[in-house]
Design a protein around this nucleic acid. Sequence first.
RNA 1: CGGGGUGUAGCUCAGUAUGGUUAGAGUACCUGGUUUGGGACCAGGGGGUCGAAGGUUCGAGUCCUUUCACCCCGACCA
Length: 568
Amino acid sequence: MRRSKAFIPTTKEAPSDAVLPSHIFLSRAGFITQVSSGLYNFLPLGKRVLRNIETIVNEAMASIGAQEVELSFVTPVELWQESGRIDKFGKELLRFEDRKENRFVLGPTHEEMMVNVVRNRVNSYKQLPLHLYQIKTKFRDEARPRFGLMRGREFIMKDGYSFHASAEDLDREFTTVERAYKHILERLGLEFRIVEADSGAIGGSGSKELMVLADSGEDTIALCDRCQYAANIEAAVRGAKQEIPEAPEAVFNRFKTPNVTTIEALSHFFKVDPFYLVKTVAKRAVYHEGSKLVLFCLRGSDTLQEVKATNVLNALELLDVSEDELRESGLVAGFMGPLNLNTCKIIFDKDLKDADAMICGANEIDYHYVGVNFNALKNAEFADIAEVNEGDTCPCCDGTLSFTKGIEVGHIFKLGTSYSKALKAEFLNENGQSEPFVMGTYGLGISRLVAAVIEQHHDENGCIWTPSTAPYLINVMISNIKDEAQMTFAENLYEALRQEGIEVMLDDRKERFGFKMKDAELIGFPYTVIVGKELINGNIQLMERATLRKETIAAEHALKTIIERTVT
RNA sequence: CGGGGUGUAGCUCAGUAUGGUUAGAGUACCUGGUUUGGGACCAGGGGGUCGAAGGUUCGAGUCCUUUCACCCCGACCA
């Protein structure tokens, strides 16, 4: 492509609302333009990057025998009613009617549609397993789209769905897909981790997320420094604490604690490690049928992990509770505790089982109990509701957990039979009996990957594309187009590289050296060949974008040397 | 959905407090000239219903009312 004819509207200044490097540079370098909140156009360069990623994904899917389809973007609302997800998705579903007043939603994901395609067409265990996927625009009317391509309302996702006759076969496919996804991210040149993820209230026997490591990531992941354990903080668990602080004196007593309402203040007041304090958190658990107040008790050194807590209750969500609401339930903010209370449900963190010498609120202004243990409590419910802390012990070995930030670019999920049951999608097994399909679902955010590559690969000058994602591998830059020798040499080199099947851009614009270099760095071609004043001495230069290093190479061996340096 | 902010040229923004020349700058774009190794310079030029609607006024980018959009923090996010 000739730069003089290419539609690449680069700008010196970023849109004022762009915050993340990927948003700033993809906008400035002319890859994308914003249409509306969470809606973006892909311009030629952006489209080429998308295509590169899609090609890699398609190859990986083909290698594991998944077949590509393309399902309708517009989906009948009935399917969503049938699966029950119309409520779960709520306002994220963009709903509308056609001229005949039939109701539709724009597909936010395609489990329902895919089950609908397969049911009644696949009837026998002999036709299983089956793995179908597509790469397609999705629409979710996010409450707050942000960060450019990172969290759009309209986005491009690769979504795959597998159908099996048994859970064992699903396990096999799940592992196969995990390996294929790993291969995809490696080819894209990304540093990532595959982590244990929250499986949510949807059930199923497990899910994993693919996290591209980047400081701007919205997810926190816990990593072990010894073994391979890695988990989203929503799902992370930990081993037993190794160094237990010294316990306070443990005689049960009611103690006056005037105005001492926080863990920090209590710790100071009693000169006791927060490990021996009970943190009591009140939440309103919301269900389809209504809501109720729930108290969560944890060690003062821990915090409530709301996703875990929601799952324990099988609730839709947890809401904060106002002090007025607490008072109505006989609770006193700052002095809440699990003893002598029968107005609401209480969940204890599992670490409080057998805990002794604890201090907790007395449900009475200015009083706490000391020397408490909960073994005597009848019907006390224990569950894992605490968020792991940095420095906690790994659940798999003696290692220590540390945190890092990640961008969730993929989520693979063992669905089991929840959808096939809801949508009555069944096959006949070897004994001629009907069974629901055992399903898996595998998502990969294609447009989010575009942003993730830049989040991980950029500098203050702009994008640094990895070779497999770059819109063009090589940029041949003519320093001065009025110099005929430069012009002729560059034209010939451009043609020769094209003949070699290399994606190459020829910067033949009537601009000065500095302007074209800045532009090339902003766009982020992995390599720029500089045809300039050195040509008179028989030399040209090859600049590597990642390092900005320039290597002088002999013009007469230009093609051969460039191919050696750039094509791996 | 709660809290805050912003809408003026393709882009980044002045101007609005205290209403009053023909609404500005930089950048980008067009023409001509000079320049050619790190976002050059000179001269000329095109480009605006000042987010929208209504109101107050002799006069509104500026004041009032309504409304829409976008952004940020939070809630939410299979």
